[in-house]
Simulated scan of single mutants.
Amino acid sequence: MALHLIKLCVGCESPEDLEEWIALRLEEKRRRDEPEEHYHVTRMVPKKIEEIIEGGSLYWVVKGMVQCRQRLVDIRPFVDGEGIQRCRLVLDPGVVRTEWQPRRAFQGWRYLKPDDAPADIRAGAGTAELPDHLRRELTELGLL
């Protein structure tokens, strides 16, 4: 069973913001004739790389709630220009909405066991059509 990562999505107000940012970055790469690959750079390198890339995802915490995920394609450690060890989390550019799950703020990324990961929202599911403020309130009350 694949292992996942979870991380705060700093600077995004919604999964739609994340999708727009990804599209912008990929368009910039196209214009510069660079490979159209989407990745997120982190300082710490996961030790369980094989478990993660065998179907794992990066779950994003947006505004205090896990709201979406992206499939992890690869994990590439590297040393930056200042000699600091870093890591590229290579992600599928598609953003998958998940059921909302409250999370407190934390630094960096954390491992997320499959049993603790929120379920994907199926297209046409009733909760997918709820306004964000109502979904947040119902989730905080433990009703979703």
Rank of each mutant, 00 (worst) to 15 (best):
D120L: 11
P46L: 14
R43T: 14
L112I: 14
Q101N: 04
R86E: 08
L134I: 15
I53T: 12
W60R: 00
E27S: 05
E129C: 14
I53V: 15
G56A: 03
L58V: 00
C12M: 14
Y59G: 04
R30T: 06
I52P: 05
R25V: 11
V96F: 07
M44F: 07
A2Y: 01
L144M: 07
V90I: 15
E54M: 07
W100Q: 07
R122A: 13
E13T: 13
E140M: 15
G55Q: 01
M1R: 09
A2D: 01
I121T: 06
R69C: 15
P114R: 10
E27M: 05
C87L: 08
H4S: 14
D115E: 13
W60P: 06
K7P: 06
T42A: 08
K7R: 09
D33L: 12
E140C: 08
G64C: 13
F78N: 00
G94M: 08
H133Y: 09
R103S: 03
A123C: 06
W109E: 02
G83D: 06
K48H: 07
P77H: 00
D120K: 09
R104Q: 12
W109Y: 12
D92I: 08
R97V: 08
I22V: 14
I6W: 00
R43W: 04
L91Q: 00
D132P: 09
H38W: 06
D92W: 04
G142R: 07
M44K: 14
L143S: 12
V10Q: 10
M65S: 07
V79Q: 04
K7C: 10
M1K: 09
L5F: 04
I52W: 01
K7M: 14
C9S: 15
R110D: 03
D74K: 05
H4T: 14
